[in-house]
Simulated assay, not measured.
Amino acid sequence: MGMILNVTLVAAAIGSGLVAGIFFAFSTFIMPAFARLAPEQGIAAMNSINVTILRSPFMLVFIPTAVLSVLIAVLAVIDWRGSAGIWMLAGAGLYVIASFISTIALNVPMNDALAKVSGNGPQAVSVWNTYLKDWTWWNHVRTIASLLSAVAFVRAVMIL
Rank of each mutant, 00 (worst) to 15 (best):
residue 1 M to S: 11
residue 3 M to P: 00
residue 4 I to P: 02
residue 5 L to D: 04
residue 7 V to H: 01
residue 8 T to I: 11
residue 8 T to E: 05
residue 8 T to N: 02
residue 10 V to W: 03
residue 11 A to H: 09
residue 13 A to K: 02
residue 15 G to C: 02
residue 15 G to S: 07
residue 16 S to L: 02
residue 18 L to P: 15
residue 19 V to F: 00
residue 19 V to Q: 07
residue 21 G to R: 07
residue 21 G to S: 05
residue 23 F to C: 10
residue 26 F to V: 11
residue 26 F to L: 09
residue 27 S to E: 11
residue 28 T to Q: 14
residue 29 F to E: 12
residue 30 I to P: 01
residue 34 F to Y: 15
residue 34 F to C: 08
residue 36 R to D: 09
residue 37 L to E: 05
residue 37 L to Q: 07
residue 38 A to T: 13
residue 38 A to E: 09
residue 38 A to P: 12
residue 38 A to H: 06
residue 39 P to I: 08
residue 41 Q to K: 04
residue 41 Q to S: 04
residue 41 Q to V: 07
residue 42 G to S: 07
residue 45 A to K: 07
residue 45 A to H: 09
residue 47 N to Y: 14
residue 47 N to C: 14
residue 48 S to Y: 11
residue 49 I to R: 06
residue 51 V to I: 04
residue 53 I to H: 05
residue 53 I to D: 02
residue 55 R to A: 03
residue 55 R to G: 08
residue 56 S to M: 01
residue 57 P to W: 03
residue 58 F to H: 06
residue 59 M to N: 07
residue 60 L to R: 12
residue 65 T to L: 05
residue 65 T to R: 05
residue 65 T to K: 09
residue 67 V to M: 10
residue 68 L to Q: 13
residue 69 S to C: 05
residue 70 V to T: 01
residue 71 L to V: 08
residue 71 L to D: 10
residue 72 I to S: 00
residue 72 I to P: 00
residue 73 A to D: 02
residue 73 A to I: 09
residue 74 V to G: 03
residue 76 A to N: 09
residue 76 A to T: 08
residue 78 I to A: 13
residue 79 D to Y: 06
residue 79 D to C: 08
residue 80 W to I: 14
residue 81 R to V: 12
residue 84 A to T: 10
residue 84 A to I: 07
residue 86 I to S: 02
residue 86 I to Q: 01
residue 88 M to H: 00
residue 89 L to H: 06
residue 93 G to Q: 01
residue 94 L to K: 12
residue 96 V to T: 07
residue 96 V to W: 11
residue 97 I to E: 04
residue 98 A to D: 03
residue 99 S to D: 12
residue 101 I to L: 13
residue 101 I to R: 15
residue 103 T to P: 04
residue 103 T to W: 05
residue 104 I to M: 15
residue 104 I to A: 13
residue 105 A to R: 14
residue 106 L to G: 15
residue 106 L to Y: 15
residue 106 L to M: 14
residue 108 V to G: 15
residue 108 V to D: 12
residue 110 M to L: 05
residue 112 D to V: 12
residue 113 A to T: 07
residue 113 A to L: 10
residue 113 A to F: 12
residue 114 L to Q: 06
residue 116 K to Y: 13
residue 116 K to G: 06
residue 116 K to L: 15
residue 116 K to Q: 12
residue 116 K to E: 15
residue 117 V to M: 05
residue 119 G to H: 03
residue 119 G to V: 06
residue 121 G to R: 09
residue 122 P to F: 15
residue 124 A to Q: 01
residue 124 A to Y: 02
residue 124 A to S: 09
residue 125 V to K: 04
residue 127 V to Y: 05
residue 128 W to E: 11
residue 128 W to T: 00
residue 129 N to M: 02
residue 130 T to D: 10
residue 132 L to A: 09
residue 132 L to H: 09
residue 132 L to W: 06
residue 134 D to L: 14
residue 134 D to M: 13
residue 134 D to V: 15
residue 135 W to Q: 14
residue 137 W to E: 14
residue 138 W to N: 13
residue 138 W to H: 13
residue 139 N to K: 08
residue 140 H to M: 06
residue 141 V to D: 11
residue 143 T to S: 11
residue 143 T to N: 12
residue 143 T to P: 06
residue 143 T to W: 02
residue 145 A to S: 12
residue 146 S to Y: 03
residue 147 L to F: 10
residue 148 L to K: 12
residue 148 L to E: 13
residue 148 L to P: 13
residue 150 A to R: 00
residue 151 V to N: 01
residue 152 A to D: 04
residue 153 F to H: 00
residue 154 V to T: 05
residue 156 A to K: 02
residue 158 M to S: 14
residue 160 L to V: 15
